[in-house]
Write a protein that binds this DNA or RNA. Sequence first.
DNA 1: ACCTGAACACCGTTCAAGT
DNA 2: ACCTGAACACCGTTCAAGT
Lengths: 228, 228
Amino acid sequence: MPQVNAPRLKAGRPPTTSRAQILAAARGLIDRNGWERLTIRKLAAEIGVGATTLYHHVQDKEDLLFLLINEYGEQVSHPGLPEEPRERVIAAAATIHDALAAWPWAAEVLTTDGFIARLGDSPLGLVEAVVAGAIDYGCTPDHAVYVFRSIWYYTVGEILVRSHTARRGNGAATTHHGAFFGNIDAEKLPHLAALGDRWAVLAPRDTYVDGLRALVDGLLAQGVAARA
Amino acid sequence: MPQVNAPRLKAGRPPTTSRAQILAAARGLIDRNGWERLTIRKLAAEIGVGATTLYHHVQDKEDLLFLLINEYGEQVSHPGLPEEPRERVIAAAATIHDALAAWPWAAEVLTTDGFIARLGDSPLGLVEAVVAGAIDYGCTPDHAVYVFRSIWYYTVGEILVRSHTARRGNGAATTHHGAFFGNIDAEKLPHLAALGDRWAVLAPRDTYVDGLRALVDGLLAQGVAARA
DNA sequence: ACCTGAACACCGTTCAAGT
DNA sequence: ACCTGAACACCGTTCAAGT
């Protein structure tokens, strides 16, 4: 879309809608109603413009979401990361996690493509921090990429499971006579039966960083073991 | 829907559509066209029945997908799991992973609710195996639930990222003059710049089990450390 | 160059009516 | 009890026509 990025002088009718305006309105709608309720038609109505007008400023809905994520990604603050490599990996991953937790729909979109090549420099800075931390710890570059990918899987999974179950509330958990598990076979599933409702108490706990530490410890240990 | 589960004798018009028939047709359509293309209307057309008829046999589309998953879950084979607790955890998790890899849409649906309470005994057997393995290793039941949840995040994330990027192919990876990362700032992102196209080579590698081992090692170590 | 309404090809779901 | 078509309230996107 070169006509959008590099406007020529003295062209025809001047624009009344800008890409920035569209993104701002989209962001407002998502923050108010949730991303699953964002539609092109509602977005156009919000701006006060025909639905089809938006297609002059973005390629399609997916393109719109990517633009939005990159805009959001630029705003994610990069805190001063620790010097120590392992702690740097953990801090960078936790920053990614917290950014996604605030905008869980981004996690959903980020799984839907080879996204990393399309991210801007700012969000990539956190990817760089994870990779650099692993290398500084003593991993090979190849292993560092594997470290990042593994952390990414864990992080995305946590975000998606958490955001989806939060949407529904705990109502479904107590469908069958107050027990978390329905009519469970205590013979075949003794530990789950013994846990009973305890599962529902444990499930909502935020254990992201604990699990992250476990994962990173294991990944880095593999990295230095492979060197020997 | 008690009228479906417990049919009374001598009721009115006999059914020409059964829930089993609907599930079989749905499964066929998903296997042929992918789950994102399954619609109630197409499913009804496949069976040769009005779209609205399906609502007499399933509550709604989500209910249909849950029924399908539970049916599939019953068929997942439980291989003889290893005796050794750590290996049992890994083998059970890998079985869950492989089942989901064959039906990635199930992973998508399984994040959309407090699913675990609604699963049948057979798929829960693998959850039991993970929890039992962690406890046998020396973890508390509470920690064992945390172990399962962490593994679940990692597994679901891997499945979703992998299935979504597979759909698109690697075409998007080489948009900008053959480089995986677009126009990257080598000053600010030295390690990513140095990796360059190597990332695209590493990304498709199946490292699920490796990462799982790293995660489980870390999680179990935390579990026995907490005991001391 | 930019914007528009009409139109296309769909969705999931409800509901009154038929058998 | 089971099945139906019509209808409701939506979608994303294309395209010829207007300014």
